Amino acid sequence: MELTINVIDAFTDATFKGNPAAVIITENWLSVDLMQSIAVENNLSETAFVKKIDNQHYEIRWFSPITEIDFCGHATLAASFVIFSKSNGLKTINFFAKAVGDLSVTKMDNGYIQMSFPNRKPKVIDDIPLALLNGLSIKPAEVLLNDQGYFVVYEQEADVLNVIPNNELLKQLAPFDVVVTSKSSEYDFISRYFWPANGGDEDPVTGSIHSGLAPYWASKLNKSKLIAYQASKRGGKLICSIEGSKVYISGKAVQYLEGKITV
């Protein structure tokens, strides 16, 4: 069987920046074992498998090299980029994902792709796991939690940039991942994302976690529109806005590769 594969750098306008994701669009689902094997072979943060329903409606699933993921923003952006690129005049796509429901995506006139995600604002916790406290080289100012991960808030931007994770300890927090974040001098806020239990050591740019980061910082900064930067080695910029139960996350993407795989 031959499949078309696209590799897209998401949340960037320059190749070799942002977060790369593979995208495979099919008429019918492949087996779970095959999808996982392809994701392992690709060895990217995520491979998005997309099942076409019609020109505007699709189902989507995301696989890291380790496991299937409930929710992935950058691979959704990558999949949207591929679909928009192949469909002249198409402005809106609707994805369905089992864990998060319907996701609406719009191609904006300014070149950004805007994704509508559920608001997953985290809640403050008092009982902080020792694996989290001992798994980060800098003590948190505050810790919160949502369905995806622990949110570690720092008072200084330098703490986010300089913190060293112990991923063997953070792995013990499964199924949760860890995001560290602070206010920023250049952006509204910055973050880094560690996910050794589900994908790898540090994710370059994580769209899904911004459905929690954006509402958190919106309430702290008293503003509904924010510019975020994920401060990994590759780095990525995200435009976020909050409207009630929805978080809109926008980014750009660029094509890196289009090819065929034989499985």
Rank of each mutant, 00 (worst) to 15 (best):
L170Q: 03
D188N: 12
L170P: 04
R61M: 06
T262C: 11
L169T: 07
W29G: 08
S184H: 09
K252A: 08
I125Y: 08
A75D: 09
V160A: 08
I242D: 04
V105Q: 09
I227G: 00
G235W: 05
G259W: 06
N110G: 12
V263K: 13
N88R: 13
S219L: 12
N42G: 00
F151Y: 14
S182P: 02
N110I: 12
L44A: 06
I66M: 13
Y248F: 15
I138E: 09
S245A: 15
L34G: 03
L145W: 00
V143M: 03
G135Q: 00
L169E: 10
C72Y: 07
K17M: 11
K121V: 13
F117Q: 07
K107C: 08
P140Y: 02
T76W: 10
E2F: 03
A253P: 04
L44S: 04
C72F: 09
G135P: 01
A39T: 07
F63Y: 15
K86T: 11
G251R: 01
A218S: 15
F96L: 10
F96C: 02
T15W: 03
V82L: 02
Y248D: 05
D9I: 00
K183F: 03
A39Y: 06
I69E: 10
Q56E: 15
I209V: 15
N167L: 12
D147V: 07
V100W: 07
D201L: 14
D102M: 11
G244D: 07
F49H: 00
S85Q: 13
V82M: 05
V23S: 01
